[in-house]
Amino acid sequence: MTTQAKLICPTCGTHYGEAGCPHAPSGATRAAAPPAPPPAALDAPATPRTPEQAPEGVYVGAEVVPRGGFKLSSLGFERSGKTTYLGMLYFLIATGRLPGYRFAWSDSLRDLEQLRAQLHRPASQGGPTFPPRTDTDRTVFLQLGLRRWDDDRYVDLYFPEFSGEDVARIWTDGQFPENLRFLRGFDGYLLFVDATASSALDVGRHLRLLSGLLELKGTLRLKEPVAVLLSKWDLVADAEATTPEAFFRQRFGGLHDAMKGQLETFRVFAVSSVGKVRTLLGHDGLPIERDGAVLHVPAPERVAVEGADDPVFSYRPLNLSRPVLWLLEHLTAGARA
């Protein structure tokens, strides 16, 4: 049986390719699923140290398991704003502006630099753009290591980019696939919820993700703190008339109820990673759509710099650092206790 025939599309709620579903899971055409990528290597092979052992040089990529600190991971489906959030968080950290913490390590520098370059693309090259939609064949992990100024404590942040196949597996089987089960050992989670996607199917998908996490942790009530990030808050029409908590209760009521019962500690944050956005218009003056969604691009303020050809872009994100800092404060307080 092929993967395509077995899995349910998390977007349409039907089997892939059936009942008008136009989607296919990533990697569905392969005869067999590829081996799981190393989750920043829980079982790292011994790294060669000498030229004799490594005639082609010494491999220094992501293999060693970081130890000695908290581990946080993001969770969320495609288009929930994880990648943009990570790109902006990286920019914040790279410029030394995350309160209380400084940059310490990253096994994903090439990828993160690409995200930064897209979000800060010069006007002469078309201006800032969102990172392209992640559509990976394999679940990959972007990582950032931080060190706290106060006591030098080390923290790892992991941002998995789930493959379509892994997302479909969670939705279909209700379980995290084997290659994601290392998330069991993490200390806190950032759950991304697209504030503009609150259909019954969307709520159901998040419920499934939550249940899968509880099953993964082997518990009925999760002790680890969860920061719920209502992403794309800038696109919520009535954002100023409501609080994030009230909005979450109103639009994602079932998920909120489930969290009340199943999570010991969670907090809802309204997040806008880039602040203002603008809608891309076609030659006919109408919004451009792709995959049924209107296309937006970041609209940061342009600041002219004396002597520079291109303006500098000044983003005004909302709550970029607060969810991470809340989780870290919570964990630190728990560790002290």
């Binding site: 010494v58 000695g68 310490a104």
Partner: peptide, 25 residues
């Protein structure tokens, strides 16, 4: 300098890792 900083960090990470030091150490 931003991109160059990332490249230098990557290089130092590589040397540190090759020497057997954990990222958190």
């Amino acid at each position: 300098p931003e991109r160059a900083a990332a490249q230098h960090v990557h290089l130092l990470q590589g040397i540190k890792r090759a020497r057997g030091h954990a990222p958190s150490a």
